[in-house]
């Protein structure tokens, strides 16, 4: 009933890899957007904003992403009956919810890494809070966000493999399907692993290129290790 693992099996795997990339691109962008807001809230002068984002980050970072995926995938239809979520949307929401918390930590770490003197100098010049952020703090913080941001993207690609539990056919799920056809999980998942490696290693090469170009190399120890294993 099984056929041997062959060249034709690369096609569904490559399609899965492409969907993984799409999934990570969309949830990465959304995650960065919401993460930036959360990170700014985390460092803002408003106590309420600080509290909300602190609690959000604390909760998301303390719960496995797999549980968050289950929560979104099974919970949303229960909480909002009648709402039809397709699998891609559910996966994007789950990864975004998770990614935002990690991006927020990177944003906070980077803002706090900018010497206090910069902020004080801006205030002394009469810049208000938003102008200070816009013209003095963020331009400097953005640069040092990039190296941990690269780590975050790699983590996101790896974590996106967990979306497989929803049945959405990304790279890992494509691997499961090919395994069911060929009965050869070892070859299949070695190829799957190689594809993940190419994506992740590619991202890290880009990151290193950036580090070499700009000479910015931030001590990764001071910032939170982004995303999962």
């Amino acid at each position: 009933m099984f056929r041997a693992f062959g060249w034709q099996d690369l096609i569904p795997l490559a399609k899965g890899a492409w969907l993984t990339i799409q999934l990570c691109a969309v949830s990465g962008i959304l995650g960065i957007f919401f993460g930036l807001i959360l990170g700014l809230a985390r460092t803002s002068p408003s106590r309420i904003a600080r509290w909300i984002s602190t609690i959000y980050i604390f909760c998301i970072r303390g719960i496995p992403i797999l549980v968050i995926i289950f929560f979104i995938f099974f919970g949303i239809p229960l909480l909002f009956p009648g709402m039809e979520l397709d699998k891609f949307a559910a996966a994007v929401i789950a990864l975004t919810v998770f990614a935002a918390a990690y991006v927020a930590e990177i944003v906070r770490g980077s803002i706090e890494a900018i010497p206090k003197g910069q902020s004080e100098a801006a205030e002394a010049l009469g810049l208000d809070y938003w102008r200070k952020l816009r013209y003095v703090v963020l331009p400097q913080a953005m640069k040092i966000m990039v190296p941990p941001g690269v780590g975050f993207l790699i983590g996101l690609v790896k974590d996106s493999s967990l979306v497989t539990v929803t049945g959405f056919i990304e790279l890992t799920q494509a691997g499961n399907i090919v395994t069911n056809l060929t009965g050869d999980p070892i070859k299949t998942f070695l190829v799957v692993a190689a594809m993940y490696f190419i994506i992740c290693y590619g991202i890290s090469r880009l990151g290193r290129l950036y580090e070499r170009r700009t000479g910015i190399h931030i001590n990764a120890l001071k910032l939170p290790e982004p995303a999962g294993l």
């Binding site: 790699i154 690609v157 790896k158 974590d159 493999s161 967990l162 497989t164 890992t172 691997g175 999980p185 070892i186 998942f189 070695l190 799957v192 692993a193 993940y196 490696f197 992740c200 290693y201 890290s204 999962g228 294993l229």
Partner: peptide, 14 residues
Amino acid sequence: EVIRNTPLLVQLYL
């Protein structure tokens, strides 16, 4: 490098 650039889930499967 291989471990850090592949998902834990795939490693566990293997």
